[in-house]
Design a protein around this nucleic acid. Structure first.
Lengths: 152, 152
DNA sequence: ATGCTTGTTGCAAGCGGATTTCATTTGGAG
DNA sequence: CTCCAAATGAAATCCGCTTGCAACAAGCAT
């Protein structure tokens, strides 16, 4: 049973420590937020959640931690097609298997989809183009089932 | 034979006129730049080219024209994975057939790739998720054949 | 435990892409 | 030609993000 107030060291934290990255109080908070997020968060949302846990945390630290995680390939950065004119980026823990993001242009809902076909597509690209894929970003905008059912 | 100095009305221009959009001198210039671009341009590059043709053109007009084209689904907006820390967006005339963008993380080259597999993937999504796809954005970062051949 | 070294943090200032506001101009229908 | 809704340009502004720097702390060696 984990002690109250003591977060179980998440995978992100373990991964960073294994790579010799110094672990600070602020980083632990930010990593925990990203690990336990139920939806895609942008830097501003991560900052707000982090400040709820520790009001002293600065947005610079959030940006630097996100940059660190990107450099280590532990998070993916998304635009989600700038839904609603947003220009901020969204972040998610890099999944073991790539997935496609579908953004409903009407209700704003984000859906994810994994497909064997996508894995085959990547394999085709690596073979036919001699291109070694390091990171993928697949975003599709459109209209979800619910929205298509409703009158305009 | 087209008259010198008289650009043949491009497809973008014809498309906009057909939709009842007012055609101005500035828009004609910007549309022509996008149509004849040999590589992906960002708003700043479009502005510079436009000002070479007409120094009075303001960046606001470029942004508004790009926004208009996006609204009409005539151009696609890309991030190209913010290569080199760039935060600007790139634009291309919407192709008749979607394609995948590959960005080399070392030399910055952008490659494009069309695939029947991608068409099948889209069909699968529309069927399995009941999601009507309006726009796609597929960007992959990695290392191109030339860069992989060279020593680090 | 203690001290040291180096990476990290917070604050303030700054950067750059994109947008808003509003007075002026202009396309193009009648 | 006239007219007016739509488009433009100029300045100011917004907003996400980055940089410079002094103070601080992680974690290794002792």
């Amino acid at each position: 049973m984990p002690m109250p107030g003591t977060a179980a060291p998440g995978r992100l934290q373990a991964e960073l420590i294994a790579r010799g990255v110094r672990m600070t109080r602020q980083r632990r908070i930010i990593l925990e937020i990203i690990e336990s997020a139920s939806k895609h968060l942008d830097a501003g949302a991560i900052l707000r959640k982090a400040q709820a846990a520790d009001p002293g945390i600065d947005r610079v630290t959030v940006y630097r931690t996100l940059s660190l995680l990107k450099r280590h390939g532990l998070v993916d950065e998304l635009d989600l097609l700038h839904l609603g004119g947003q220009s901020a980026h969204f972040y998610e823990r890099r999944p073991s298997r790539d997935h496609i993001h579908m953004a409903c242009l009407r209700c704003g809902k984000i859906m994810e989809f994994e497909s064997q076909l996508f894995e085959r597509l990547k394999a085709q690209i690596q073979r036919d183009c001699q291109f070694h894929i390091a990171v993928t970003r697949v975003e599709m905008g459109g209209y979800c089932a619910e929205c298509r059912r409703q009158p305009l």
